[in-house]
């Protein structure tokens, strides 16, 4: 800072209400006469507000909540006094309410398959695992063996398509709104392509048959395709998805009806 005596991190602490009363008053007085620092404070408040506004409340997976509640109950045996027993009863009731609340919260299991939230989440997961060195939990180029391994992880039948023009690399379990989903990775046109395989009962498909591709999100696009008891969601860049959608339709024997948003 060349013309101003107030360091940036002090203005930052001021924005967070972390200065002592005397220091805060000093900064406040300074802001009345210094447009530069007043501008910095405005920018800091803008960024602070943007971070707070970016929060999205994801529901806690019911399986996690139930596991933890069960564990909390099991580890409470050492409370033996009457007070403790009464407290335990109260806590149990509270936990039951929490769990019941969560059960209501998870219906329907996922937002509609074509909703912006789902599409954004799929693209976000694709991008996340592009950068994650250990993204591939099960490495295999054999669709049947990979499917068998993934089925054990996600708990529903998985069929992995052979895509002409793309090489299967492997897969992993991931989850969306607390629901297990199989994620398979291919290399197509020199880049990673993600194919999410979800249980159709928990991921209502936007179309009864044929594929449906969403509008681009940045450079990326999501194409949804029902296949048996599952829904496939292919995520890649615009070029990749355009080139590979036909191969995917052929692989799953889907009709040629397509919808593009």
């Amino acid at each position: 800072m060349t013309t101003c005596a107030v360091p940036f991190d002090r203005l930052n602490a001021y924005v967070d209400g972390e200065l002592l009363a005397g220091d805060e008053l000093e900064v406040r007085r300074h802001l009345d006469i210094c447009a530069t620092c007043a501008g910095s404070v405005e920018s800091l408040l803008a960024v602070k507000g943007a971070v707070a506004a970016s929060a999205e409340l994801r529901p806690v997976p019911h399986t996690l909540r139930e596991r933890l509640a069960a564990h909390a109950g099991a580890s409470s045996h050492w409370g033996r006094s009457r007070v403790a027993r009464l407290g335990l009863l109260a806590a149990g009731t509270l936990l039951a309410v929490i769990i019941a609340g969560d059960r209501r919260e998870r219906l329907p299991a996922l937002p509609h398959g074509g909703s912006d939230h789902v599409v954004e989440a799929l693209v976000a997961d694709h991008l996340h695992f592009l950068q994650e060195p250990s993204a591939v939990e099960i490495g295999s180029n054999d669709p049947d063996r990979l499917a068998a391994a993934l089925e054990e992880k996600v708990g529903f039948p998985v069929a992995i398509p052979r895509l002409e023009g793309a090489a299967l690399v492997g897969g992993r379990r991931c989850s969306l709104w607390g629901q297990a989903i199989a994620l398979t990775f291919y290399e197509a046109r020199g880049k990673r392509l993600s194919l999410f395989i979800a249980d159709r009962a928990r991921f209502p498909s936007p179309v009864a048959q044929g594929s449906r591709c969403t509008a681009s999100i940045g450079d990326y696009r999501v194409c949804l395709l029902p296949a048996g008891d599952t829904v496939l969601a292919m995520v890649g860049d615009g070029e990749q998805t355009a080139a590979m959608l036909g191969a995917l339709e052929v692989a799953v024997g889907a009709g040629r009806r397509r919808e593009v948003e």
Binding site: S76, L88, L95
Partner: peptide, 10 residues
């Protein structure tokens, strides 16, 4: 602590 434990879980 034992008395506090049920509250802790909640």
């Amino acid at each position: 602590r034992a008395r506090a434990h049920p509250e802790f879980a909640a």
